[in-house]
Design a protein around this nucleic acid. Structure first.
Length: 216
DNA sequence: CGAAGGATGCGCT
DNA sequence: GCGCATCCTTCGA
């Protein structure tokens, strides 16, 4: 297992994000190991980025983003979902990369069991397709907030692509586009993914809300 | 197919 | 209170 060194993350998130494609996040729990090869990520620039949680300054929730690079920032949203970021640059910059989607390469059965609700089986491509699904497949929640992913004995860690993945990466084309679900700075093309990869989430623009009140 | 709405809890104004 | 870096189900064509 070749761990990704902290220096890798100690750069601007926009530079780190596309290089994370093909890298592997793995979570060792009592139930077993699940590893996911990243296929889609989003960069957030920190205090200067209106779409970032760090835009309005440091709070108890986002404190990890203001810490050193190579740590996991996990947040809870929409009353039921978790999303995981990897802190970049560090030392107060509060920049990070959101892990949006990936392909499960180890522990498929365990990931499938975590993702399955009721009777309907989840298709393989959908196991970690979307930031909240990825967290569910890996069993990541707020107890992983602040975890150092750059040490070998961490239950949650990042490693370089496998040899087979590296070969496949060479044939992959990295493309970029607007970020998903953010209402401000939506024009910034800081979402990166592998073109034609089936595990990439479906794009949804942020302007799908606002049912607003009705007049009877 | 696509669009629409509900679920659901917490951080921030 | 409001609004979310979301997902899933249902409804209609």
């Amino acid at each position: 297992m070749a761990l990704i060194p902290r220096d890798f993350f100690a750069r601007h998130s926009v530079q780190v994000a596309p290089e994370l494609l093909g890298c592997v996040i793995e979570h060792q729990t009592a139930a077993g190991l699940v590893a996911v090869e990243l296929t889609e990520v989003e960069a957030y620039a920190g205090a200067s980025d209106p779409a970032s949680h760090a835009y309005r300054g440091k709070t108890a929730r986002n404190a990890v983003m203001f810490g050193p690079p190579g740590h996991a920032y996990v947040y809870f949203t929409y009353g039921m979902h978790f999303c995981v970021n990897l802190v970049c640059l560090g030392y107060g910059s509060a920049s990070a990369v959101l892990l949006r989607a990936g392909r499960v390469i180890e522990g498929v059965e365990l990931a499938s069991a975590r993702r399955t609700r009721g009777a309907a089986a989840v298709p393989f491509r959908d196991l970690a397709r979307g930031p909240a699904r990825l967290c569910q497949a890996l069993d990541i929640d707020r107890s992983q907030d602040g975890t150092d992913v750059c040490v070998a004995d961490s239950p949650l860690r990042m490693r370089w692509p496998d040899a087979g993945t590296t070969a496949r990466s060479a044939e992959r084309k990295v493309v970029s586009g607007p970020r998903v679900g953010v209402s401000s700075a939506a024009e910034v093309p800081w979402r990166f993914w592998w073109e034609g990869e089936p595990t990439v989430s479906v794009y949804r623009s942020a302007t799908r809300r606002r049912p607003k009140l009705v007049t009877p």
